[in-house]
Nucleic acid binder design. Sequence first.
DNA 1: CTCCAGGACAAGC
DNA 2: GCTTGTCATGGA
Length: 227
Amino acid sequence: MKMTHRSLLSIYRTLLGHFGPQYWWPAKTEFEMLVGAILTQNTHWRNVEKALTNLSSHLEPHALLSLSQTDLSELIRPSGYYNQKAHRLLLFTRWLTETFESIEHAKQSKTCTLRASLLTLTGIGPETADSMLVYTFKKPVFIIDAYTRRIFSRLGYNVPVSYEAFRQQLETALGNHLSVELCNEFHALIVIEAKEFCKVKPHCLPCPLHKQCAYCKKQFRKISKFL
DNA sequence: CTCCAGGACAAGC
DNA sequence: GCTTGTCATGGA
């Protein structure tokens, strides 16, 4: 199916009409968003919330940097991958404070420059970078996650395997409709829709393009072990 | 007990 | 370039 701004906006309006605006990201401060974006990598949000609660008195760059990696990893234990994430959180926070005076200052950077800079950091991949760009730095980029791939595949779109190719496709189709507000709500609505769907029918529908869908490929690998 | 969640990375091909 | 193993917890 051809991807146009009309079809994308139609999907967007349908989701918005059904669920209403989500007003993401769920966090009290912008720094908490950034921490949450790293902690939620391949992890249930409820586990991230436990970690954020433990971190509550350290949710500020310098307070976080005052912790040793060992202490930090112990605090974020509930969010899983705690050794990796402690290391990555410190690397990221160090980068943030050393590169910019404040988050407000970081917002002044050009989108592509900031994105490229984020992607040089160990532990910040394309999805995490784009979440940070939209929700914290207020930049218009289309965030792609496993849910986005699955939903668009099942709607009959040709979903490129590469993150960049898929993102380009979506952003090009949206053209001048691409805005921070749309990127913010669209991603939040996709996540809400996916979670809602999973409650009803967890992983039951066959994907029409399972050869190209990253999610289904992952599932298929697991199944094929028993063949 | 098994399976999975809003990924990312490095080693191996 | 693409594929695979790894990282780890808590809840269903």
